[in-house]
Design a protein around this nucleic acid. Structure first.
Length: 500
RNA sequence: GGGUUGCUAGCUCAAUGGUAGAGCAGCUGACUCUUAAUCAGUAGGUUCGGGGUUCGAGUCCCUGGCAACCCA
């Protein structure tokens, strides 16, 4: 390659490492895959960390470890290496006497970041650190790029998100967040499985994107030569399954919404949705309360949580307020008897910074007022119930007051975490609600729903009385791991393309 | 969408409009118990991109990009 064809990042450090790689290639297999380890750093520390020098001297077992060189402290004819594997770090004690001159000389040219395998017995150094006294050492993968500096590490958020692998190598706390995320999801599966729910998978590519009000991603199926949408929710498919006698069913998977990026929104995010026949929204509030409380206890060992400097008590019963109650409480100057009056609400919404459209009824106006004046202040765990029918096109109307639905949302730290309701199983009512959505879409609301004729057909066969709910997994993980940004709980968050 | 801040060596950071620097990492050498090892020497730059002002721009102005934070 000529000088001006070299990539810009071919700096001196990489050139030197590439030269080392060329020598490895010349000497034989530069990327061997015949080394097998038989233990991890964590196991060695756990089993032998407390042993005395003499006890280790008498212990003749030979161990094989492998991992990445994170630090090298050379001392002429003896060196210390910090080796990192998936479980942690173990120090290698490398002596020229044990390795032989040629092997030791080669080792001296290895770099921080290289992946190696080591064989040897355990020992304690004079400083008391458990170490592997290396009798055999092999270079398994040459690292061509220098790692970030050992003390300050990698702090640049952009690089951390774009090159998560690098973040994971040098920032051990990051890995713990994602391990906890796995624990949380595993707990939720066990919780639901124990209650008799069955996990299923439903389409991500949908002909009609339904189940939520959001803008979808559009794609194209070549063989069918037609437009398809990435799902914004699995809801309508899961309820079809309830029609088919999957009476307790759930799905944990990705939803896609074509909206902006922020510390709380990623275009693809993980949602739990579950449906239970012969249950109502109150049953699901109870279930949700138990699920979140037990999950915190399981993964954090406590129902007391600290999130972004504030304490939360998940052990106490969660608040349960109607939307009208919450709005009245946050806006004592309002007349609570007129919260169902659109003409009364419209100027108030405007004054509070909302943007009411001409077609908005009292329900939608009240919801706007709720979002503007209440939502962000719902810090302690709180269920808000009685969502207006106007903003709840898939929820069952309340028997006593058809202006509101048997629906709740759950809030924690000012954020919506869950949304559940008794399902609308009246096929004619659902068809009318879809029609209202289509009218709204025609009028310019590009988040409004499509008319899903097959879903109506399914309802016509008979959806048993059912309750269903969605829980945002990413937000729940953020809370349980004390992360401020959704990007901190996504391994590869969405980023704008790097500019060159 | 609006505002604020930031972008300089591989990483973490300096630099009144006046010679672009340090630590770590790297390279050469010394060192057989180090822990951010130590010691001596040495090399490393499209200052995010483009344009402008100026005798002179990392720094000031305009414009574009990306990111973080705040607001809606």
């Amino acid at each position: 390659m000529t000088e001006d064809q070299k990539p810009q990042d071919e700096n001196q450090l990489i050139v030197v490492r590439r030269e080392k790689l060329e020598r490895l290639r010349a000497a034989g297999q530069a990327y061997p895959n015949d080394f097998r380890r038989d233990t991890l750093a964590e196991h060695l520390h756990g089993s032998f960390g407390e042993c005395t020098v003499e006890a280790l001297e008498a212990h003749e077992e030979v161990f094989r470890v492998a991992g990445r060189i994170m630090a090298k402290r050379g001392q002429g004819k003896v060196s210390f290496v910090e080796l990192m594997d998936s479980s942690g770090r173990i120090q290698l004690f490398v002596q020229i006497n044990a390795l032989g001159e040629a092997a030791y000389e080669a080792f001296k040219g290895w770099d921080i970041g290289d992946v190696v395998g080591a064989v040897g017995r355990l020992m304690k150094t004079k400083a008391g650190e458990l170490s592997l006294r290396v009798s055999e050492l092999r270079l398994l993968t040459k690292s061509l790029r220098p790692l970030p500096e050992k003390w300050s590490g990698l702090t640049d958020t952009e690089t951390r998100y774009r090159q998560r692998y690098l973040d994971l190598i040098v920032n051990p706390d990051v890995k713990a967040v994602f391990q906890k995320r796995t624990q949380i999801v595993r707990f939720i599966r066990q919780f639901l499985d124990t209650l008799g729910f069955q996990e299923v998978e439903t389409p991500m590519l949908q002909v009609i994107p339904g189940g939520a009000t959001a803008r979808p991603f559009v794609t194209h199926h070549n063989a069918l030569d037609r437009e398809l949408f990435l799902r914004i929710a699995p809801e309508l498919y899961l309820k079809r399954l309830v029609v088919g006698h999957f009476e307790k069913v759930y799905e944990i998977n990705r939803n896609f919404r074509n909206e902006g990026l922020s510390t709380r929104h990623n275009p693809e995010f993980t949602m739990l949705e579950f449906y239970q026949a012969y249950a109502d929204y109150r049953d699901l509030m109870d279930l949700t309360e138990n699920l979140i409380r037990d999950c915190a206890l399981s993964v954090n060992g406590s129902t007391q949580l600290r999130y972004q400097g504030r304490d939360y008590d998940l052990g106490r019963p969660f608040n349960r307020w109607t939307m009208a109650e919450a709005v009245a409480k946050a806006n004592p100057e309002l007349d609570p008897s007129r919260l169902g009056d659109a003409d009364y609400l419209r100027p108030i919404v405007k004054a509070k910074g909302g943007n009411p459209q001409p077609g908005y009824g009292a329900g939608r106006l009240l919801t706007e007022l709720f979002e503007a004046t209440v939502e962000a202040d719902l810090l302690d765990p709180t269920f808000i119930t009685e969502y207006p029918t106007e903003v709840s096109p898939l929820a069952r109307c309340n028997d006593a007051n058809p202006q509101v639905t048997d629906r709740f949302e759950f809030f924690l730290a000012g954020r919506e975490v869950a949304n559940g309701f008794s399902e609308l199983n009246d096929a004619d009512d659902q068809a009318a609600r879809f029609k209202a959505q289509v009218d709204a879409k025609t009028a310019g609301d590009d988040e409004a729903m499509f008319f899903d004729a097959d879903y109506i057909r399914a309802l016509e066969y008979g959806l048993p009385p059912t309750a269903g709910e969605g829980i945002g997994i990413d937000r729940l993980v953020m809370f349980l791991t004390d992360c401020a940004s959704i990007r901190d709980v996504l391994l590869f968050p969405a980023m704008r393309p790097e500019s060159n």
